[in-house]
Computed example of a mutant assay.
Amino acid sequence: MRLKICHNTRYDYREPVPYGLQQIRLRPVSSSTQTVHDWSVRIEGGREEVMFHDQHLNLVDLISVDPDAHFVSITCEGEVETRDTAGVVGPHNGPAPLWYFQRQTRLTRPGAGVAALLAPLANTGREPLDTLHALSQLIAGAMPYQTAGTHAATTVEESIATGYGVCQDHAQVFISVARELGFPARYVSGYLMMNDRIDQEASHAWAEAHIEGLGWVGFDVSNCIAPDERYVRIATGLDYREAAPVSGVVFGGGTESMIVSLQVQQ
Rank of each mutant, 00 (worst) to 15 (best):
M1S: 07
M1F: 10
L3T: 02
R10A: 14
R14N: 05
V17M: 03
Q22S: 02
Q23V: 07
R25G: 11
R25P: 01
L26A: 03
R27Y: 04
S31I: 13
S40Y: 11
V41L: 15
V41T: 13
R47F: 15
V50M: 15
D54Y: 01
Q55H: 11
H56Y: 13
L57I: 01
S64W: 02
D66H: 06
D66N: 13
D68S: 12
D68R: 14
D68A: 14
T75L: 15
E81F: 12
G94A: 06
G94I: 00
P97L: 08
L98V: 04
L98G: 11
W99F: 13
Y100E: 10
R106P: 13
T108D: 15
R109Q: 14
A112P: 03
G113E: 05
A115F: 08
A115W: 10
A115D: 08
P120W: 11
A122L: 09
N123G: 07
T124L: 02
R126E: 10
R126S: 09
T131G: 13
H133P: 02
S136L: 04
S136W: 01
I139H: 04
A142M: 06
A142F: 00
T147D: 03
T150Y: 02
H151L: 07
A153Q: 14
A153K: 10
T154Q: 09
V156E: 07
S159P: 04
A161C: 05
A161T: 06
T162G: 06
G165H: 01
C167R: 04
C167Q: 08
D169I: 00
A171N: 09
A178V: 09
A178S: 06
A178Q: 14
Y187E: 05
G190L: 05
G190V: 00
Y191L: 05
Y191P: 00
M193D: 03
I198M: 11
H204D: 00
A207Y: 00
A209R: 07
A209N: 06
I211A: 04
G213V: 15
W216G: 12
I225N: 00
I225G: 00
E229S: 11
R230G: 06
V232H: 13
R233K: 14
T236Y: 04
Y240D: 05
G248L: 01
F251D: 12
F251R: 14
G252R: 07
G253L: 00
G253F: 00
G254A: 05
T255M: 08
S257Y: 08
M258V: 12
V260W: 07
V260H: 02
L262R: 09
Q263M: 10
Q265Y: 12
